[in-house]
Design a protein around this nucleic acid. Structure first.
Lengths: 205, 205
DNA sequence: TTGAAAACTTAACACTGTTAATTAACTTTA
DNA sequence: TAAAGTTAATTAACAGTGTTAAGTTTTCAA
């Protein structure tokens, strides 16, 4: 049984190699520039070999996406130290904005492109890491309500509102729409001000 | 000078024909399915002819985008009848959500894809209709502040917050991310609840 | 009617994702 | 050890993409 195990391990190594190199590629050159042939060339395999390890290109992107979520969750570990729910929610938002602005290519894949979601549907799998992040958000909102820090409302409604706002900020920024509202050099600052404004506004007086 | 004028008119007619058919195509089959060759086939011209009327594909999409903004602005005409700024802002948001959900392909082009913005940069032109919509938004926010209906803050900050939120809602919905937060059949309803929540929350007690 | 200018097309380039058929490599069995 | 079987990887190809250069047809003025 040692041989079949080694073979399995080798297979996993090539899978990882494909994913690693794909990620490098779209961090370097952007999502639209990633092609199956380019990935193949980097790992010195023929393009069709990738299809032995993944169903199609979307599936490759889906797994890249997963690793993006891991990156994001890492940033949020320190949140547990913040006891005040509002302050915790605020810091979570700040982390979200920073992540989006620092890794726009990852963000694009995770939340803007439809490719990874199509793969997800084809695979019948779950949005595992994404769901995890959303659960964390809902729990913070719930916590804030329980402690009477925000006006009571349906948790999903508020969570959706908050998520949509930070996503809106990041995705509009990434797609160069926000500089239609304020000068380019003020975009990042104003994004944070908008987030601050929301948190301040939703905080019960 | 009659002849040169007629020629110019014919040229404009073909331009319009290209744009009309392009728009039909991506409303029918989606943005990603629109190709230069498909457009050309529909209008019974060779693919390369399109390049006599537009610099590239992005430029075609840019002009389609423009017509999307016109569609959107039409929906907002009735807003002028609403005197209460908060109520007007609310209705503007509702219109925005409805537009996005009703014409997801247009919305995609106008606010999600980067192609039209690239064209805009190449052309050195302005985001004319888009700017107009944003001005309208800022004015309403300003109005609400002047009348003491919301807590004073920088107009750009609040406008950005509101726009980002509705954009976030629509774009996450279009890309099937919101059904990770609530069941698919509840998405639209919850989107509206989130908008309601924001407006209620920002309204000065 | 001829010649220039404008409008349009054909052919081609360098890509894209993906599949079927084929070869190379390794494992197991006789 | 040699043959058979299995797995891994490749080559060739298809049908599509945006775009450019060169050639053809049409239109109009002198």
């Amino acid at each position: 049984m040692g041989i079949v195990a080694r073979k399995e391990k080798q297979k996993q190594e090539i899978r990882s190699l494909i994913l690693e190199e794909s990620m490098k590629l779209f961090v370097e050159e952007g999502f639209s520039k990633v092609s199956v042939r380019k990935i193949a060339e980097r790992i010195q395999y023929s393009p069709t070999t990738l299809y032995l390890y993944f169903k199609d290109k979307n599936e490759i992107l889906f797994y890249c996406c997963e690793s993006g979520f891991k990156k994001m969750l890492e940033q949020n570990i320190a949140l547990a130290l913040i006891s005040d729910p509002i302050e915790r929610l605020h810091q979570m938002g700040v982390n979200y904005l920073n992540f989006g602005l620092e890794y726009p290519e990852y963000y694009d894949l995770m939340f803007i492109q439809e490719a990874p979601m199509s793969a997800l549907i084809d695979m019948g799998a779950g949005w595992s890491s994404g769901d995890q992040a959303l659960e964390a958000l809902k729990m913070i909102v719930q916590d804030a309500m329980d402690k009477g820090l925000v006006v009571p409302a349906k948790v999903e409604t508020v969570a959706m509102a908050v998520w949509s706002m930070v996503h809106g900020l990041v995705s509009l920024a990434i797609r160069q729409r926000l500089d239609k509202l304020v000068p380019a050099e003020d975009v990042e600052k104003t994004m944070h001000e908008s987030l601050d404004w929301l948190l301040k506004t939703m905080k019960k007086a």
